[in-house]
Design a protein around this nucleic acid. Sequence first.
DNA 1: CCAGGTCAAGGTTAGT
DNA 2: ACTAACCTTGACCTGG
Lengths: 642, 642
Amino acid sequence: MIETSHSYHHPYKPKQRFTHYIKSPDTQNVCHDIATTCRNTEVDQPAPTAIIHHHHYLSQSTANLIETTHQHNGKEDFGPPSSSSSLSTTTSAVTAVENNIVPSAQLHDLTRSKSSPTTSIKTEPNFERKQFSENLNNTMASLMKTNGGKVVGSMTVNVPCLVCGDEASGFHYGVNSCEGCKGFFRRCITQGMSHRCNNTGHCEITPFSRNSCQYCRLKKCFDVGMSREASRLGRRPKRPRSDMKSIVKNEKELSPQHSLTITSSTNMSAQVSAFVRLQEIQRHQQEQSLNTNEKFIKQHTPPDERDKELSPTNRIDSVSSTTSNILSSPYRAPSVTIETPNSSTSLSSFPDCLFQHRQPLSSTLMPEIHREIARKISSMLLYQEKLLTDIEAKEMDHIAQVIISAHLQFCVCTFEKIQMKIEENPPIWADSVSDDLNCDPALVWANWQLSFPFESILRTFKYYTFFQQISQDDQICLFRHGAFETILVSWFTLFDAEQKLMLTPDFSAYMDRDFIKTIKTLGVIMLEIFDLGMKASHLRWTDSDIALFNALLLMNPERSDLCDKQIVGQIEAKLMQVLYRHLRCHHPNEPNMFLDILQLIPSIQEVNQIHLNAVQYIKRHEPQIFNSLPDVHRETYEGLLP
Amino acid sequence: MIETSHSYHHPYKPKQRFTHYIKSPDTQNVCHDIATTCRNTEVDQPAPTAIIHHHHYLSQSTANLIETTHQHNGKEDFGPPSSSSSLSTTTSAVTAVENNIVPSAQLHDLTRSKSSPTTSIKTEPNFERKQFSENLNNTMASLMKTNGGKVVGSMTVNVPCLVCGDEASGFHYGVNSCEGCKGFFRRCITQGMSHRCNNTGHCEITPFSRNSCQYCRLKKCFDVGMSREASRLGRRPKRPRSDMKSIVKNEKELSPQHSLTITSSTNMSAQVSAFVRLQEIQRHQQEQSLNTNEKFIKQHTPPDERDKELSPTNRIDSVSSTTSNILSSPYRAPSVTIETPNSSTSLSSFPDCLFQHRQPLSSTLMPEIHREIARKISSMLLYQEKLLTDIEAKEMDHIAQVIISAHLQFCVCTFEKIQMKIEENPPIWADSVSDDLNCDPALVWANWQLSFPFESILRTFKYYTFFQQISQDDQICLFRHGAFETILVSWFTLFDAEQKLMLTPDFSAYMDRDFIKTIKTLGVIMLEIFDLGMKASHLRWTDSDIALFNALLLMNPERSDLCDKQIVGQIEAKLMQVLYRHLRCHHPNEPNMFLDILQLIPSIQEVNQIHLNAVQYIKRHEPQIFNSLPDVHRETYEGLLP
DNA sequence: CCAGGTCAAGGTTAGT
DNA sequence: ACTAACCTTGACCTGG
Ligand SMILES: [Zn+2]
Ligand SMILES: [Zn+2]
Ligand SMILES: [Zn+2]
Ligand SMILES: [Zn+2]
């Protein structure tokens, strides 16, 4: 399985018969000439095809209109709109356009009437003949003739692809789909590749966008009911769709027949196989009939460096083996282990979407500020900075001092402390994941949560004088939203840009990206964190930089539910200035560092959101797990979830 | 378009044989296994193909042999090597290799003996069969037999690139070519670049040398028949394509027979047709035997609103019809018309690449600054701005005042003036391009140039006190680089975001994007300008905004050849502050306008660069035209060009 | 008619 | 900023 983290952006080139030839600039000119000629004669023949030649697809409206007409024809002809049910999965856009049938008919007409003069281009005739005979048969010819009085024949041509809306070439894998989606689906199920969505997993799939997100395209394929068995021998099913969704959602509803089909399928899709895998795990766990909790207790632990941290433990000190507490976090956290509630019930429905295919937003090609703009802004900031009065400068420095000292006191992940710990106990190389990290996802997740030192963080914030200036409610609000972001930023100290390694938050081992990918449950979000950290690690952070940046992130006036946005905004601006000033002094040779740091913010917020989604999922689907989290955690999260 | 003055010397690294088969990650494994297996058996069969597999390049003679044989076959079957005449345009490399037939036969044999295990990969047989039946006929098959003994086999692997002789990866753009030449050709035709040969234009193209001269490589590509639409449906032409070179170069040399063949060829290459078109134009002009100049003088002018501008004319007031002076520009420009030098001689070589194939850079999805970052920066700037002392604020305001008043005085395109002009003479709708704009590109271009009011602009700059502070040389440098950018920004007043229209710079007509596309010569750069303007038009500009922005653009410390970058940088920072402050006051409800404006800069600079490239081309290829530009123009441009 | 194979086009990216 | 190996895409083809 190769991880394709990027998607391919093959531009959509509609298979217009003629635009096909308007490819090279030169032919374009030829066309242009023709078009001009046409325009001159426009008086005689009212505005014929010039349109089409000029904007092959730039005149998209036209094209779409035409396309739509086809689609409509194909599906409904003279029939009643009852067939719309079969189109239920297509986007609203399509249906919306369908209303335009009447006006488009005209254009349609024009299109064709023009195509004949175009044949004056030498290469045309052959091609035309071929295309028409091959694809459209004689039915098309008749349509051509009657045209206005739409004939039945267009059937073959104008069914839309249920996946992307392009013109379907037939009934493939149980669904009317275009050549592209057919091929795409085939490749997916035969060569089992795993994709990732760079957005929220809800990318719109259109002929133009379908290549931008493989994950969402494949999801859509499943959503509309594509499957290997669907068509092959079994003709089209009466009930359209026996898809993934329903399986995942409610497996009881499945007829045994269905599940058999899936299990026996030789080429499982990534999604299906993931599901099956999960089910197998679950079954396995049930068979063993031993409390999953015991897993966490029984250790096959090389008595390495676990629990070097000073931590008053509530129940069980260490969660698991070397690689189990990989995910513990900075600041001082109580090490507690959740005593397993019977979470196995919902195991199969554990958020695939969240933990499996969701993806590294942080590694997306976040548009960087253009070099020129960055330079300009930097120089302006520098200019302004010089205009500061002494008093103002003093105030800035004081604020910085407070923030930095709080950070140094409470955060466990400072460079200093890490250095010490590492020298005491040199980290090992992480190369195999303990089973514990690959078992019940909800449990693994919960135990990971326990390592988050929300208390220390809150205490840090309380240190900030400006934080005290705002209302209690807003303080809580800011803390809730900023807590995980603070953890993320604190982890920046764990990354080594050159070796592309991340130290585990307990400093016990180095991980590389490939290793992280093998961590089943937390692998995906850890990957996010890793990518984010790698991006950040190109900057030369110091502990004070991190402290100030954390403070800045905290005071975000855009947090929802904030009462007094204004004062938070003012503080934020001041903290920007503080950070800028600090960087100016401590990184004099990195004039762009300030902007580089700012540019990390969207990624941080995205990872934060991903984490929040996971929390929400847990709360909804694993209430026992959620409720067994410590109070601080629950209180932190409660306010964030709808 | 992009002038690549240097050539890239990428060392040639022959690829490994088996990679040929490695298509999908999964097959990769399979192949690897096979390869391993094969290698293991090498002990028994004394190191046969290993050589070929690893440095197939050493066995190139084999490949060439085969390909050459093909061609011979297609043309002459078993005829004598007189067929070389038909190959006359291929490089000497090929013929040179032909001498190697005997030694290579051995290798050939070995190759085949090896390839039989490889056929276990599914895709092979089909491909083989297809290729053979379609292209080579049975005659070829028999030849093959006699050649090696076993038919088929290795064949498919060893086809050479007709351009460089490297191993072809397939049939690309109508020619068997390697990945490198395929990619190179694609880049050339999509990004239209202009190359130059440092030798005589006859550089040998080998895998080792192919990167030393782009010009000759591209020439070779054309010579062997590469063209965009050549292959299209993936079928190679029955005959090896007759070479375009001779046609393009020297059509007299063509036997009538030849030219017939070509003219009737269904798949004309883009270049050829472009060439033919240009020649036709040229011939046309010659036939008319009237000085092209006269075209500009003779008017079929509806006595509309031309020359409403106050303009002391040097020779001829107005260039042409309504749509001819569409492109005149802001600030007061003397309307002169270039008296045609006999530019028709070089007409055929006019930069198609410059004006035709250029992609609209300005409309590229320029990454915008993330909303969150923008907000943060804005709030910080606001905060800093408030820290300004009164004195500093006063100074800012004064600078702004000077800049704005200079602008209002000299620029013709202010909203005020436009408003007046429009009320006097309501603009018409531009819907057809006058012929004049579509004739000799160099002339059209030159006349467009004449409308640039460089003098007014320079005078405006001289008004700025800070501009006087810097050295004379730097003033000139800044002016040269900034002049066209100033024009571009001044034109921002011409755009209407809602209706997506652009007023012509003489305010005589409205143009939409489609119309601009129909302007042949200037269409491409005008499109850039239009797209840029549309992007800019979403902001609510006032004349003072534009004035300050222009000043900011002028004082760019990154301009090359600048002596004292530091002082320019300081002034720039101050101007940033001035602009920011101005926007703060005059656009209090658009807090992000400052950053939005800054984000236009890269696009502006890109369009500026495009324009500069065009100037450079003209200077090099149309020296008469260039020299007949006014002194200001020439002096402005001279320093910019290498 | 459709699953699956084919392969040129073109996007991507590490390398230079 | 260019190069070229590598990869995905999808129109077209083929066999069942
Ligand atoms: Zn589709
Ligand atoms: Zn997506
Ligand atoms: Zn080549
Ligand atoms: Zn050369």
